[in-house]
Nucleic acid binder design. Structure first.
Lengths: 112, 112
DNA sequence: ACACTGTATTACTATACAGTAATATATGGT
DNA sequence: ACCATATATTACTGTATAGTAATACAGTGT
């Protein structure tokens, strides 16, 4: 079976774009980075990020709906954990790219 | 030199988020996917995507400003080409993730 | 039952930005 | 110089969504 040039339909594009949109908010990135590999409850995330509780809760809900984090209730608190490691993979790719782009610019300026 | 847990400052978060935001528009993804490895002028991209010329031009400008595509004038036309392959790398990661997520859901439904 | 704490939700405001029509700016041909 | 074509820009409108204060909801202890 031959693999011809894939024609991405609009629904697929929308899904992919949505995934990127999920990662396009500094606050969400901050939460994900704060979480890292551990499990944390909302209050701790609020404290660690310094953000408003409602805001953190909203972002966690969005991440949860997208299947990026898991939720585990434990008494009064709710514990979250990153369940999708591709998140970090994406961030790594972006970070290295930004870094090298930055280095290039710095190099270009080094003659001045 | 010990590598302690990197504390991402707000500026860095903003840059990373910005990179993802760049990829969070279906139209831009469509343009990038249309370009692929070749060089195309604006008219051809407009034809291939079926989008408004002003819109394509705007998105190309945004991609250019972000350093994702290069621009080469040739007479009346302007040729664009993807200059940052991490773009495709990011898309690949997202696509496989979405696919496996989808497969999981389908599997979960297979018992019904 | 009541009070307390942790989390989610609601309702709102403000901002960012995609799409678009109209217009401007090139460049080439006559 | 003028016209035609390709691309960029401007000005505008509508929509999505982040942040937030207030409130609801759930679980725990008394």
């Amino acid at each position: 079976m031959k693999k011809k040039k894939k024609e991405l339909n609009d629904a697929a594009l929308e899904m992919i774009a949505g995934r990127f949109r999920l990662m396009s908010e500094p606050m969400r990135l901050k939460i994900l980075h704060t979480l890292g590999e551990r499990e944390m409850n909302v209050s701790d995330i609020v404290a660690a990020t310094g953000a408003n509780q409602a805001n953190v809760s909203k972002h966690l809900g969005i991440l949860y709906d997208a299947g990026v984090v898991t939720r585990r209730k434990e008494g009064l608190t709710v514990n979250y954990r990153v369940s999708d490691d591709t998140i970090f993979e994406l961030c790594d790719v972006v970070c290295s790219r930004l870094k090298s782009q930055f280095d290039l610019r710095r190099f270009a300026l080094s003659d001045l």
